[in-house]
């Protein structure tokens, strides 16, 4: 019992918390009546503080709501990209209709071009946007494509 000094409260607390495992200290604590008395007091303190534990859980929809907020973030950038794409397409057509005609006829039919393009748009947009935004932007893109295809049809004959 006299091989080491008696332990202070903070050390006893660390032993109770499982943070101090030095065998010489735990052995002394187990065999010293004075330290045992102190251990009882400290254990009482730890027990009282354990009352701070709480059982409440997050609502089940928490993760879903979190993802909604995360997925909405890239919206302005994706929308800007879609608008720019539309503008470029329109400008190209109005500046030089022949360019678009060429673009659509290089080894690819109009319908295949349309489907391929929509599929690609969907793929890119669905990564960044929520479902509602994807539908809105896609509707606009499809309208643009149909308009262009219609103009081409009229021009070609």
């Amino acid at each position: 019992m006299t091989d080491i000094q008696c332990l202070d409260e903070v050390t006893i607390q660390a032993i109770i918390d499982g943070e101090e495992t030095d065998i010489s200290l735990t052995k002394h604590l187990d065999n010293c009546p004075a330290c045992q008395g102190l251990k009882k007091q400290v254990a009482e303190l730890v027990k009282t503080s354990d009352g701070l534990r709480i059982d409440a859980d997050l609502p089940p929809e928490f993760y879903e709501n979190l993802m909604d907020r995360i997925e909405v973030r890239p919206f302005p950038i994706a929308l800007l990209a879609a608008v720019l794409f539309g503008l470029v397409l329109f400008s190209a057509y109005f500046l030089n209709p022949g360019y678009i005609t060429w673009w659509f006829t290089v080894g690819i039919t109009h319908q295949v071009g349309l489907i391929f393009d929509i599929f690609f748009d969907l793929l890119v947009l669905s990564q960044a946007l929520g479902p509602l935004s994807v539908i809105t932007v896609l509707t606009a893109l499809v309208a643009i494509e149909v308009l262009i295809l219609n103009k081409l049809r009229v021009m070609e004959g």
Partner: peptide
């Protein structure tokens, strides 16, 4: 998630605020 929520609950004492802080 639940541990962060419980911590916030102990600070704020309010479930709604604690959920906001957790989010």
């Amino acid at each position: 998630g639940n541990q962060v929520y419980r911590l916030a609950l102990r600070y704020t004492g309010n479930m709604h605020q604690a959920q906001d802080i957790t989010q």
